[in-house]
Write a protein that binds this DNA or RNA. Sequence first.
DNA 1: ATTTGCCTTACAGTAAACTCTAACCTATAT
DNA 2: ATATAGGTTAGAGTTTACTGTAAGGCAAAT
Lengths: 128, 128
Amino acid sequence: MYTISEVSKLLDITTYTLRYYEKEGIVKPVRNANGERVYEDTHLAWLRFVLRLKQTQMPISQIREYAQLYLEGEHTSQARLNLLEDHRSSIQDQIRHLTETEKMLNDKIANYKVFISKGNTLDLSMND
Amino acid sequence: MYTISEVSKLLDITTYTLRYYEKEGIVKPVRNANGERVYEDTHLAWLRFVLRLKQTQMPISQIREYAQLYLEGEHTSQARLNLLEDHRSSIQDQIRHLTETEKMLNDKIANYKVFISKGNTLDLSMND
DNA sequence: ATTTGCCTTACAGTAAACTCTAACCTATAT
DNA sequence: ATATAGGTTAGAGTTTACTGTAAGGCAAAT
């Protein structure tokens, strides 16, 4: 059982964001007698999962879609599986792009280092 | 020598975006007698590089910073090198996050597949 | 009793990165 | 000569994902 500010600290996101996620249908904490949000461990686990999806560029709208399917119950498992598989392939694309760009940067960085160590006397030509 | 719409097609970005990038100081095409933008191969190469940086989550503001340093000449090479090294380490972080999340998804996907193949009779428990 | 601290809501504001509109210009095709 | 297919600018509008404000409720501490 956590208050909104406890969750905020635990997950390192603001309370604003947590309320925003609720408004967007991404998380549904229970309420106490006082009308205050109460998050349980399941919510924490779900939010940690959500943050990973976010970190890997899944838009809020798609995360909401997945959350909705989850709430609709077990008959949506095929739809959820499809969504996860799509996201996995998006992740694989991202890794490919990143790896290519990393290689390119390695080259550029090496060129810059040679250039600088030679006292900036060389020709940098294609060194954008 | 390319017109704005040719570049747009070659790079698969809109002409709006190209004008926006110019306003943001990211690319400076020359102008013909008619005041129209003329992009050369160097601009194309630079824009392809920019798109890679974008694809790997470098914000426009930082790309502009790099472009500015480039225009300021060779004495900025150390600053450019620093910027590229920072971005490379950001890329490495991203790859780490993506790889972890991919592993997590692999597990989840495998669970869903078992669940579905058993006719949805199993317990999904932690299967968010 | 009232201050303090944390909570609530509705709604307005912000930043980034485009995206579009309106009004206008200019070269070529019919 | 005029329609068409491009180009130009300034500036307004959009989307996403927050971020902040205002007005107020409630409970424990002073």
